[in-house]
Design a protein around this nucleic acid. Structure first.
Lengths: 192, 192
DNA sequence: GTCTATAGAGTGATAGAC
DNA sequence: GTCTATCACTCTATAGAC
């Protein structure tokens, strides 16, 4: 019998796209098997905890990507470069609004409570590392925290709007405006 | 035996709270009967089209509320007063972030496509009437349209964030910032 | 033989339609 | 309440690596 052998880490990104497209409730096991091409046996082999474990793994995978690509740079790198990279990487990750934020979508669902810690951690970390970069770039810490929260919320809103209007260009317009507002709030960069 | 007689318009607000709390997928018929206190028979009597017709009625009801309370004033009343009223009414309607936007939640679900016209109409109308008020208040029309889109998206993002962080105060902070940014963009009010 | 990964029929529970 | 379809999930059978 022909078999394609997967590893757990190969499966998670496939599951992620299904959960992203359908939400937690909407991602039925039959949708998960159909869209990943994996049988229920395979899925339950990798995720004995069933659908909830699959979703938890997907959330952890998304969080890991953001931690690596966005949060750690914001926390450690040269702040203005890290912030510029955040805008570019967010636009790329969300495919200019064609892709939804899985964490934000879970936050609006009833199942939010089940994944509350992961959801909260993701947004808290984004806001906290962005505020850190803003502060290092010369912002007042209180204003940096407020602006970071505002910007992270703004990205989520842009995703809702782009999907609601079925108009991807709305996402880019909001991102550009947020980026410009953030740049204007910072003191002029020191030229070394 | 005592009977409570409902009319269709009495039922819609009850259904609305269930769909708002659980989303379209999450709102099972048993949840709808349990939380409204109505039997499946009653619901199918009022809504022969089943769950989809219930959700459509709820969307129309929400849209009607916003049209009456927010969109028409934005389109017709003294613009600065109408905008100030929009901020206050939005904060009250969304219960300072404790309540989710049903239309925004539907937009993120797979079922978006089924209700695409209603979802698009709601957001389009909000943006269009807000832009009209801003223009009448002295804004450049192009800037007014961009700012209106930005603000309506910002409200949606604030709702996602408040729910994700489980922190209602985040909603008020974002709303206040958006309101202030909007006020700052307008020319000084003429004193008649 | 053991072990892990796979496929998919079969389970009871519950969904939405009527 | 009754219907069928589908839900999340379990389990058996089997494939190949060792």
């Amino acid at each position: 019998m022909a078999r394609t052998v997967f590893e757990r880490e190969d499966v998670v990104p496939l599951l992620a796209e299904v959960f992203r497209a359908l939400g937690y409730e909407g991602a039925s096991l039959s949708a998960l098997t159909a869209r990943t091409g994996l049988s229920k046996g395979s899925l339950y082999n990798f995720f004995p905890g069933g659908k909830a474990e699959m979703a938890a793994a997907v959330l952890a995978h998304v969080d890991g990507w953001f931690e690596r690509e966005i949060f750690t740079p914001l926390a450690q790198d040269e702040p203005r470069a890290a912030i510029a990279h955040m805008w570019a990487a967010s636009d790329a990750y969300f495919r200019s609004g064609r892709r939804v934020c899985l964490v934000g979508a879970f936050a609006l669902e009833e199942t939010r409570d089940r994944f509350a810690l992961a959801i909260q951690g993701y947004f808290r970390r984004w806001i906290e590392t962005l505020a850190s970069a803003l502060t290092r770039a010369g912002s007042d810490p209180g204003q940096a925290a407020a602006l970071a929260e505002y910007a992270v919320g703004g990205i989520q809103g842009a995703l809702v709007l782009a999907r609601a209007l079925n108009d991807e260009t709305a996402f880019g317009r909001t991102l550009a405006r947020l980026e410009q507002e953030m740049a204007a709030s910072l003191p002029p960069a020191r030229t070394p």
